[in-house]
Amino acid sequence: MLHTQVLKSRLCWRAFRSHKEQLKNYYQALLPLLDKPLNQVPMVAVDLEMTGLDAAFDQILSIGLVPIRDGQLVLAQAQHKLVKIDGSVGQSATIHGILDNHLKQALTPEAAMEWFLEATLGKVLVAHHAPLDLAFLQNGLTSLLGEKVSLIAIDTLAVERKRLLRQHEVLKEGSLRLGACRDRYHLPIYAAHNALIDALACGELLLAQVASISGTEQVKAAELIG
């Protein structure tokens, strides 16, 4: 309960302080979702591919979004955008498979952030290891809007860590990776590695986690937001 109140007042404060109508709307649209049971909350699973892991100077290469409505992933509205970068993808291509010539048709970082804000309006973000993705997104939005942006999200990694610790399991190295978490719920192995598939994989993991946590009482959105 207290946690929900803190989250709410933080969102209100951000909306109040913001000078951009777009951002005010974004924060306010999240407010009514926080006390709702999770299966009634519109969400969107998100995953990014980046040129590296440091939000201070690495760049976003692609963004995958899969909306979750009524507790189900809606593939018809799944989207995948490539983002233009300064310079070359360099060595990171070996991880995400995105090559420089793929990026010719890509969105500019500004256009990508505009699109992201619109596509996720009124939806709670879901990501695996969310702090990393949020850091990149916040940087992108901040440079687009010219004011500090801070996002909230459900982090499936944090949810899993909490659940395992509650079962008194010893956390082994690698046991919180997306694949390892999915394996625990007998979710299929997805070989492909791109932002859209990882967003889908993360969304499915959340559904599985919710199914295993909820049992009798229903989980509220705010309880899972870190």
Binding site: L75, P188, E204, V210, A211
Partner: peptide, 30 residues
Amino acid sequence: CRALTVGYYGKSSVYVPLDEAHPQLYIVRS
């Protein structure tokens, strides 16, 4: 593929909630 939605059903809810008003084809993935 694009028309699908993806759901997850946990044992704790015992039965798959079948919506009489909206019949659909269920494909078991796991």
